[in-house]
Design a protein around this nucleic acid. Structure first.
Lengths: 225, 225
DNA sequence: CGGGCCGATGAGAGACCTCTCATCTTGCTC
DNA sequence: GAGCAAGATGAGAGGTCTCTCATCGGCCCG
């Protein structure tokens, strides 16, 4: 339940998606045109298709329609062009299960992927992430640190969520930037540093370790205690 | 699939929830203490329980625990006190399916209720509301009017959503206020008027009709055309 | 130990967003 | 038609959020 077909012709995005999925435990395969997308999708080798609408060869709508015409129920998440609600509606009516509009943050795509690939689609989604004294309420965008409740802004929350989903792991600024800010954010910015600082201030400096030259790591509160 | 048990001892909130649910097509029954909540829940007459944690007689946690001990899988949405993540976590671990923290906007509760009571829990949730030339993308908080894409703020979007979910129906300022702003907002404010104006400006004045002395009504674009 | 990169930090600009308030306009009632 | 109530509107205060930029500090290497 983790083989994902990514049909996307823009290198930058394809690589961004593939890397991210891989580091989250999935096995992505990339194809860059509509014909291959359809062929691969029909092999039955995949559990999910992430499908760009603007593909060369055969556009995403057509790929999707043909897949559905063949009675194939493979879950499909479409990537639609910037701000095109029309595309979105057309895609959903054409049989897509979900969609993302570009440019998107990786964490958002990941949430949709998780939703579609859960073992038991009936089970309620976890709404609280909890790691050693630090809990994030995914709904209310609030955190609690040893019983104290802290409000986080949207950005702060997204960053904290990324750390909590990869506890103990070193995350590079580049990774954090693309996960939280999206793939087309200025790579020269020190915005990650700034937001790490905000989290340290609000959630406890000892939880966010600097790994010089590499990035940052979220350490379990229990280690620090 | 629409009988809802509401266990809430604060009159104001119970009535707010019951009225709202009724106007959305559900059949709510209100009980105001834990003992009754448990008894009614166990009758099998209900499809969903909205359960306040701070009930007299028997607190919500206990009610929930006993329901689950009796192998009753009735879906439960708990209402937790302001900002208490601890309560939330305890509730979810104790077998709740979902939660709301007070004070909440009615539309949010409604979204959760809809989710739990869908005929087919597998079916993807609708993510676009569409009515006569006006489409709302529930995900990106964007609207499109006859192919033009418009960004809406959070409040604007919530208000527009409320209108689109009750097309053709006159909604009083009071209703709109409690749906969109929550039940403890200053009733003397003209904030609804102001936001209706914003929507008129962004989405077309002709779609939002003033019904003097009553409130506002969303009219289908096709009527106006 | 000196230089230099890497990271930490403070300050603040700019862009919303939400809501209030005062004023203007409209339409209803008598 | 006068007067009043209901609604429309403009302006702006106050807040939050995001991001940039300049500076400070400290670690590592030669």
């Amino acid at each position: 339940m983790n083989r994902i077909l990514v049909a996307e012709d823009e290198d930058r995005i394809a690589s961004f998606v593939a890397k991210g999925l891989r580091s989250s435990g999935y096995s992505p395969t990339v194809v860059t045109d509509g014909i291959s997308a359809f062929d691969y999708a029909m092999t039955g080798e995949f559990d999910l298709l992430v499908l760009d609408i603007g593909l060369p060869g055969m556009d995403g709508f057509t790929v999707l329609r043909r897949i559905r015409q063949a009675r194939n129920t493979l879950p499909v998440i479409i990537l639609t062009a910037r701000q095109s609600i029309t595309d979105t509606v057309a895609g959903l009516e054409g049989g897509a299960d979900d969609y993302m509009s570009k440019p998107f943050r990786f964490e958002e795509l990941l949430a949709r992927v998780r939703l579609r690939l859960r073992d038991d689609p009936h089970a309620p989604e976890p709404t609280v992430l909890d790691h050693g004294g630090l809990a994030l309420d995914l709904r209310s965008r609030r955190a609690s640190v040893d019983d104290r409740t802290v409000d986080l802004s949207a950005r702060e929350f997204a960053l904290a969520e990324t750390f909590l989903r990869h506890p103990g792991q070193v995350l590079s600024r580049e990774q954090l930037l693309s996960h939280v800010w999206g793939y087309d954010f200025d790579p020269g910015s020190n915005i990650v540093d700034v937001y790490v600082r905000y989290l340290r201030r609000k959630l406890g400096a000892e939880r966010f370790e600097t790994v010089r030259g590499m990035g940052y790591r979220f350490v379990d509160g229990s280690e620090a205690g």
